[in-house]
């Protein structure tokens, strides 16, 4: 069985602990063995930069090195973790001096950043690690009669250097959703507006103003549910009128998990799926 390193970010913790089960369940359905990178640390979350941005490089060089130590690639379902870790990888791979200095410090923990591990997020994991054809074979039942609005979130499409698909006209989310039997509703108002998650503790009202926009747009376009790959977008946008789920939750259900196992009952805004 193919193996992949599961990077534990804050989306697996506390109130969001079920995201870990959703993730391991998803990997199981995909026939991929998940190896927990148990000594991995926070990616910085776009917050540790406010202490010292060099620490962010250090943290993520170390996170990737932990995957390389185990001989696996690194997988995170979180858009933000993905973007920050992938950005660090780019910086390290293009700056031998930075890589050398960090490696000298990493050596004390017996670690080395080599640059061999790839960084995966759910969407490119399905496309490039599992393969779309293999993915389709894993689907056991159709979630029919549901209109789903894909919502990418920002950090899988920007910055361009780490975008997992064509950032101008992405199609991967649609390609992942369609085989589940749902009807995909694209081109709705504010589909590319940010969920506001990262303003939750800097300007909470800003988050409130933004989170509702894509939801309203999707509702107006007739979607029953919004589906995002990102656990942070999910957290920011759950609790309003229009329900939102993580793509992996829908995949898990289509691959045979019960809605309860897929954590769908934990949603603040109730979701009904017809199976």
């Amino acid at each position: 069985m193919k193996k992949i390193g599961i990077y534990p970010g804050c989306c697996f913790q506390g109130a969001d602990i079920h995201n870990y089960d959703i993730t391991t369940q998803f990997l199981e359905h995909m026939g991929v063995e998940g190896v927990l990178l148990d000594r991995a640390a926070c990616c910085g979350g776009g917050v540790i930069d406010e202490t010292n941005k060099k620490i962010v490089y250090g943290l993520n060089a170390r996170n990737i090195a932990l995957a390389e130590e185990k001989g696996v690639d690194l997988y995170t379902p979180c858009n933000t973790c993905y973007m920050i870790i992938a950005k660090t990888k780019l910086a390290l791979d293009s700056d031998p001096e930075l890589k050398k200095k960090i490696n000298e410090i990493l050596a004390e923990e017996g670690l080395e950043y080599k640059g061999t591990a790839k960084i995966y997020h759910t969407l490119n994991l399905i496309r490039d690690f599992v393969g779309l054809d293999e993915y389709k074979k894993k689907i056991k039942r159709q979630i029919s009669g549901v209109k789903v609005a894909p919502y990418y979130g920002c950090h899988v499409l920007a910055p361009n250097e780490v975008a997992i698909d064509d950032p101008e006209n992405p199609t991967i989310l649609k390609e992942v959703l369609e085989p589940l039997g749902v009807e995909v509703v694209e081109g709705y108002k504010d589909e590319d507006t940010c969920c506001g998650y990262h303003a939750r503790f800097t300007e909470p009202e800003q988050k409130e103003r933004l989170a509702i926009k894509p939801l309203d747009g999707a509702k107006e376009a007739g979607a029953d549910i919004v589906a995002t790959p990102c656990p942070l977008c999910h957290k920011a946008m759950d609790g309003y009128d229009e329900p939102i789920l993580q793509v992996t939750q829908l995949i898990n259900v289509a691959c045979g998990s019960t809605p309860e196992e897929a954590g769908i009952n934990l949603n603040k805004t109730e979701v009904k799926l017809s199976l």
Partner: peptide
């Protein structure tokens, strides 16, 4: 609110490796 969050974030990551949400 934001600077308190930033200080706490770093402090708990330093303590445990993860932010205490």
């Amino acid at each position: 609110i934001a600077t308190r969050r930033a200080k706490f974030w770093f402090a708990t990551v330093f303590e445990t490796g993860q932010i205490d949400k």
